[in-house]
Each structure stands twice: as structure tokens, then as C-alpha cells.
Design a protein around this nucleic acid. Structure first.
Length: 603
DNA sequence: TTAGGGTTAG
């Protein structure tokens, strides 16, 4: 990598360089030009001028040239200057390492960092924050911890920037406790360190604690939250499905004039969709002056969640017409939209165009969408063949087989359900979920004994399924209901009586639903009820029906996997109880919200 | 002359 230079020659050239630096006014000028340089061709010209008088033998000047190339993302040129330096110092190393991080080569950055000791250059706080950032990008906890130890050894643990990077790194590596430990030990904190810890909780599904920290920040600090922090707070509200808090955060965004910011707007599009108000998502999206790929993707995904597949595809066409390049996440959204709206042909066409037209190689997530798309529409054999051909990391493969298992249960294909479950159980992935779904698949096909046998096997082998839960937000209060657990159900006897009445009326009207429907169609027998249990969304629905006055719109967010089965049921329920229902899908969220979400606080 | 935090995915 480094060419050894004759030391005498270096000394002569360095003297010449110093002489020139002291006596040539243009040297200072050239450094100023490097600082202000905006394009690669100018950088190359300045580079050529610097070579002749030997200015590049001066480390300070060469460092300026490296950082100029790094700023212009010309990492090869930066590396070339670095390689030709006789004595790169910590600034040269850090500049190049940061160049690799910023151009998407964090592994190369870590490799370079590992070479510093053999060149006897000691990393400083700038180097550490850069390489910690590389670990964050890679979610590399092992190296992150090693570097953290190095930070402690060198006594840099009180540096604000290094600590903020560490908090961020632990958060990105899903070690929230690690992030909290570093944060707790910080003697001095600022808005960045607070943002890092809030993001650590928010990005790891701990929205409640993220919002609590945000409240603490507002109490403890004089600084105001900036757009970075607000983006994390909005994300926390989205993950909680907490519309009221989301609107409060939106208010803060408007007051500080961040509402047209591309990233903030993307977070709000996502938040409103996850909180059941896709019309607000659309309003936020349409106000963005020049939306980039991310708000477009957020909006495509938002529409997809609500079963508005055609809208998602129109948005996709719109972004292509505006020459905005889609990314891999955009295609997950597009394929998801096609899958959930039964647009199989369109979905397959988009899948094929991914690489051919847009140069994006499909990954396991895209394949999972296709398995889902085929499986949902009953093309189980094709979905099964595709699933077998996918080679990916164990957790990604588990997603594929979990998806296929869900589809095979939906269509009563016990043979494929057995195969998918076995693969999940054998690979030790999603084991409890696989047992439950397989048991339900057997129950659905009438094989109650086998279903019971599987439940017994679960008990015997100590496999426990975390019970699913649904919750209802009425006014500002949350009510949580656990699957099959009547004791956790507020007003339980009233709720069960109401649901049974509802079921009776629906039967009279000829509704025939599967066991996953919201009414007790298939749970008349004790044995069946024991297996299927009371779905938490049924309990939540019953509670909402009792609690919300007539004439109020109730928004019901539910998992679209059950949407087709339930959509008709909801229409009937609306008719029977004389209340209007709006059925919306939010993955894994089961909300019944009062009409208050239609208020126009911010519009 | 070198450093930190935010958004979209099943």
C-alpha cells in the first residue's frame, strides 16, 4: 500500500516544500481553493498544481487534498494521495477512514483502522467517532464493543461526540441497555446525545420509553428539540400507534417550521398511516415541495397497508415519471401493495422489472413478498417451489417459510403447512409461532386430535407462545386485551354476551366465516374454543362496541392477512349495531379508535 | 486539516 521513499529525498523535498510554502503566496491560496472546491475537475487541477513545487510532501497540505477528495466523494483519489504520503498523521488516516464510511464502505474503514497500530499512529477522538459510526452502519456489536474498550483505555470516555456515537452504535446494534449504560455515565449531554438515546429506544420498538426520555429532555435541557430529535419522536409515536402524541409532535414540527422537511415529512406520513389516518399521510405527503425516494416510499407503503394497491402503483409511476430512482425498499412497498390487493400479474411484472429496468437485485424480502402474493391467491404450489429455491440467512428464510405457513393455513393446505412448520422448528426459528399456526391449520381442516397433540407437545417441550394482544385507544386511554385471556378483559361478561348476540344475528343473515373471523362461528364446542381461544381483536371489538356511542366512526386497524375474511363481517357488524366502521390495516396493530381522530387540530 | 443524532420494509 505504501511506497517507501528515500528519506534523504523526502528531507530535501520537504525543505523545498517549506521554502515554497513560506515564500510562495499561492500556497495559502491553493489550500483556500481546496477548501472551497466544489467539483472533481477543479480538485484535479489544484492537485496537479500542488505536485510541481512538492507541496504534497507537506502533510498538512496533503491532508487538505485528501479531505477535499473525501468531501467530493472521490475516495480513490483520496486513497491515492494517502498512499503517496511519506508520513500520514492521524488526520490523514481519519479523513480517509471517514471517506470510506461516507461512501458506503464501512468494512474498508474498519480494516484501515486496524492498520493504524502497525504504522504507529494513535487514533484520536475523531477517529473513534468515525469508526464507531462504521460499526453502527454494519450493526457490528462485536467490533463496536472492542472499540468501546479501546476508547476507555485511551481515556476518551468523557468526549461528548465519542459517547454520542457509542450510544447510537449500541442502539443500532439492538443493545438498548448498552446504549443506556453509556448515556447514564455521560457527564455532559447535549441535544445529539439525547437524540441518540431516544432513537435507540424508538428504533428498538420501545416507543413508550422513547417518549418518556423526550419528556425528560424537555424538562432537563434548555435546548429545544431539533428536527433530528422530532423525527425519532414521531417514529416512536408511529411504533406505538399513538395518534394523540403524534399530533402533538406534528404541532412542534409546524411551530419550528420543519413540516416541509423531506425526512420529517416521511416520518409523519408513516406515523399517520400507522395511526389509522392515511388521509393525513396523504396531506402531509402532498405538501412536500420535491419529495425524494423516501417520502414516496413511505406513501407507497402507507397506501399498501390500507389495501389501496392501485394508489401505491400510481404513486410508483408518478415517481418514475419525475425521474426519482426507486430503491430496494420502494420495491418491497410496491410488491407488498400488489400482494395485499390481489394484483398478482402487476406484482410479478414489477418484480421482473426490478433488475431489468432499475438495476436492483431482488433480495430475500422481495422473494418473501412474491411467496406471499402467490400464497394469498391460492397458488400454493408455485409459492412452495419458490420458497424452496430461496437461499438466505436463517432469519430471512424463516420469514419466507412463515409467510408460506400462513398462506397454507389460510387455504387449508395442511401438507405445505407441515413442511413449512417443520423447517421453522428444525431451524429453531419462530418455533412457538410455527407450532401454533400448524395446530390452527390442523384445526381448520378438522383434524382436532392432531391439533390437540401439537398443543400437548408444546407443553411437554416447554415451548411457550407469547400471547398476542390487541388494544383499543378510546379518548386518551389504552385498553389492552390478550388472546384467550378473559381475565384481562374489562367488562368481560358484557363483552362476551354482546359478541355472542352479534354472532347469532350474523348467522341469521347467512354470514359464514372461517375460524379467524371476528365472530364465534367455529368456537361452539369446548374443544375448539380451547384451541382457537378468544382472539384478542374480538375482545377489543366487543369492548369498543360497548364503550363508544352510536353514530361515531370507529376506525379498526387490523392485520390484512385476515382482511378478506373480515371485511365482509365488518360490513355486517356495522349494519347490525348501527355504527359506521372504517376498516383499515396496520400490520400488527389492532386499534379501535374513537371519532376524535377526525378532529382538525392542525389542518 | 479529521468526528456524532433523524425517515421508508415482511
Amino acid at each position: 500500500m505504501k511506497k517507501p521513499l528515500n528519506q534523504n529525498l523526502v528531507s530535501v523535498l520537504r525543505t523545498a516544500s517549506n521554502f515554497s510554502r513560506q515564500n510562495t503566496p499561492s500556497h495559502f491560496h491553493l489550500i483556500q481553493q481546496l477548501r472551497n472546491c466544489k467539483d472533481s475537475s477543479s480538485a484535479k487541477s489544484i492537485h496537479a498544481v500542488l505536485i510541481k513545487p512538492g507541496f504534497l510532501y507537506d502533510t498538512f497540505t496533503a491532508n487538505h487534498l485528501i479531505s477535499c477528495y473525501v468531501r467530493l466523494r472521490r475516495i480513490d483519489s483520496a486513497g491515492q494521495v494517502f498512499d503517496e504520503m511519506s508520513e500520514p498523521n492521524v488526520v490523514s488516516w481519519t479523513s480517509l477512514i471517514s471517506g470510506y464510511v461516507n461512501t458506503g464502505h464501512p468494512r474498508m474503514a474498519l480494516w484501515l483502522f486496524g492498520r493504524m497500530p502497525e504504522c504507529s499512529v494513535l487514533p484520536n477522538e475523531f477517529t473513534f467517532s468515525t469508526v464507531i459510526n462504521a460499526c453502527s452502519i454494519l450493526s457490528d456489536l462485536k467490533n463496536g464493543r472492542k472499540i468501546h474498550a479501546h476508547v476507555e483505555i485511551l481515556g476518551l470516555q468523557s468526549n461528548l461526540v465519542v459517547c454520542s456515537s457509542l450510544v447510537d452504535m449500541y442502539g443500532k446494534c439492538n443493545d438498548v441497555d448498552g446504549a443506556q449504560r453509556v448515556f447514564d455515565l455521560m457527564g455532559c449531554r447535549n441535544v445529539v446525545s439525547w437524540t441518540s438515546i431516544i432513537a435507540a429506544y424508538s428504533q428498538n420498538g420501545r416507543g413508550q420509553e422513547a417518549l418518556q426520555l423526550f419528556r425528560e429532555f424537555n424538562r432537563a435541557m434548555l435546548e429545544r428539540p431539533n428536527h433530528f430529535m422530532l423525527a425519532s419522536v414521531i417514529n416512536a409515536c408511529a411504533s406505538l400507534g399513538r395518534l394523540v402524541s403524534g399530533k402533538v409532535a406534528h404541532g412542534a414540527v409546524i411551530r419550528q417550521c420543519y413540516d416541509l422537511n423531506d425526512v420529517i415529512a416521511s416520518a409523519m406520513v408513516d406515523m399517520y398511516a400507522k395511526c389509522g389516518c392515511v388521509e393525513y399521510s396523504d396531506k402531509v405527503f402532498r405538501r412536500i415541495p420535491n419529495p425524494s425516494v423516501i417520502p414516496y416510499t413511505s406513501m407507497i407503503v402507507a397506501a399498501a397497508k390500507y389495501g389501496l394497491g392501485k394508489v401505491s402503483l400510481q404513486l410508483f409511476e408518478e415517481m418514475i415519471d419525475r425521474r426519482i430512482k426507486p430503491n430496494d425498499v420502494t420495491f418491497v412497498g410496491v410488491l407488498h401493495a400488489c400482494s395485499h390487493s390481489g394484483l398478482v400479474d402487476e406484482g410479478l411484472q414489477h418484480f421482473e422489472s426490478m433488475y431489468e429496468k432499475h438495476g436492483i437485485s431482488p433480495n430475500a424480502k422481495h422473494h418473501t413478498c412474491i411467496v406471499d402474493m402467490l400464497g394469498r391467491t391460492g397458488r400454493l404450489n408455485e409459492a412452495y417451489e419458490l420458497a424452496k429455491s430461496i437461499q438466505a440467512e436463517p432469519n430471512q428464510e424463516a420469514l419466507v417459510w412463515g409467510t408460506l405457513l400462513s398462506a397454507s393455513r389460510l387455504h387449508g393446505r395442511v401438507d405445505i403447512a407441515v413442511e413449512a412448520s417443520r423447517r421453522l422448528i428444525d431451524s429453531n426459528q419462530q418455533v412457538s409461532g410455527a407450532y401454533v399456526m400448524l395446530s390452527n391449520a390442523y384445526a381448520l381442516s378438522g383434524e382436532w386430535e392432531t391439533a390437540h397433540g401439537l398443543r400437548s407437545e408444546m407443553k411437554r417441550t416447554g415451548v411457550r407462545k407469547e400471547p398476542g394482544c390487541s388494544w383499543v385507544e378510546i379518548k386518551d386511554l389504552n385498553y389492552v386485551f390478550y388472546a384467550g385471556d378473559l381475565s384481562s378483559c374489562a367488562r368481560r361478561s358484557e363483552v362476551v354476551t354482546l359478541l355472542r348476540e352479534l354472532e347469532g344475528k350474523m348467522k341469521q343473515r347467512g354470514y359464514v366465516g372461517g375460524s379467524m373471523g371476528l365472530v364465534f362461528v367455529d368456537v361452539e364446542e369446548e374443544a375448539k374454543e380451547e384451541i382457537v381461544g378468544l382472539h384478542s381483536e374480538r375482545l377489543a371489538l366487543g369492548f369498543a362496541l360497548l364503550s363508544i356511542p352510536k353514530g361515531v366512526t370507529i376506525r379498526i386497524m387490523k392485520n390484512l392477512r385476515m382482511c378478506r375474511d373480515c371485511h365482509e363481517a365488518f360490513k355486517l357488524i356495522s349494519d347490525i349495531v348501527e355504527r359506521e366502521f372504517v376498516v383499515r390495516d396496520v400490520n400488527r396493530f389492532h386499534h379501535f379508535r374513537s371519532g376524535s381522530c377526525t378532529c382538525r387540530d392542525f389542518w
